[in-house]
Amino acid sequence: MREPHVATGPSLAVEVAGMRLQNPVLSASGCFGWGEEYARFWDLRRMGALVGKAVTPHARPGNPDVRIAETPAGMLNAIGLQNPGPAAFRETILPRVHSLGIPIWVNVSANSVQEYVDLCGMLSAEPGVSAIELNLSCPNVGRGRAEFCVAPDAVAETVSACRPVCRCPLIPKLSPNTTDIAALARAAESAGADAVSLINTLVGMAIDVDRRRPVLGNRTGGLSGPAVKPVALRMVYEVVGAVSIPVIGIGGIACWRDALEFLMAGATAVQVGTANFFNPMAIPEILDGLETWLRRNEIADVREIIGAARLEK
């Protein structure tokens, strides 16, 4: 006799720029360390891909205090890209995360086109690096960059310079601190980007009225958390309509319903950031919730709902 029919779970697998991801739920850069902190809560092999803390051309100690401020349904951060630099990353961090057996995306951040090119050349061919996410949008490390990441021609220049030296998929992460995010995405696509991810944080500020000065040592910081979700979702929806490369949705995703909204807006995958901070189980809970929702709605494949909420013009 044959075994009775066993219902298999829905497929959560997606494909981004030729990479197969076992599910569309990733960590967001800067919100997950290099995973070791969360490996003490759950099995990291469950996630679609691990996107780690930004790597810069040289080690950075980070900004002086105060680095974070809580705001309504969100937080501001001005960490200042604290990281040990590419050599230490390659020698001590990469071998450990590579052994997890899940795709590893390396977020790189720099101050000039040449530095981005150098970082891509240095890291994209390393065993264990599945993709490079170009952090074109960190708002906390100096004026020059904040300007250059919000103009389409600067995005195009950086991406087209990196593309020939980058040996793996190249995914620019876009800044929301711009007037036309679709233009940034189009510039990235025509310069050879394999996908785009968005949004990075929105530049914001908080003031301590008792001390009569900005709360953050850096004066301004990047706003993240549930407060930014509607803005992020709108930008993702808009960018999906403007480009034909995959879009990775980021911004305030805290539960499976949020993730589903981004997927229905047309994102191929999502990244979970600040939610990890207030719920270390955010990613596995989102995965469980997505699977339950698909099962309940008798949807066999998560790809069926990608873009499901998009309206005809």
Binding site: P61, I68, N276
Partner: peptide, 22 residues
């Protein structure tokens, strides 16, 4: 210190270390 995550991931609760770094 004010913390976001409490587990070492956010790098928000740092103090200056003697000899450099946080």
């Amino acid at each position: 210190a004010p913390m976001a995550c409490g587990v070492g991931a956010c790098l928000g609760c740092t103090i200056p270390r003697r000899g450099g770094g946080y």
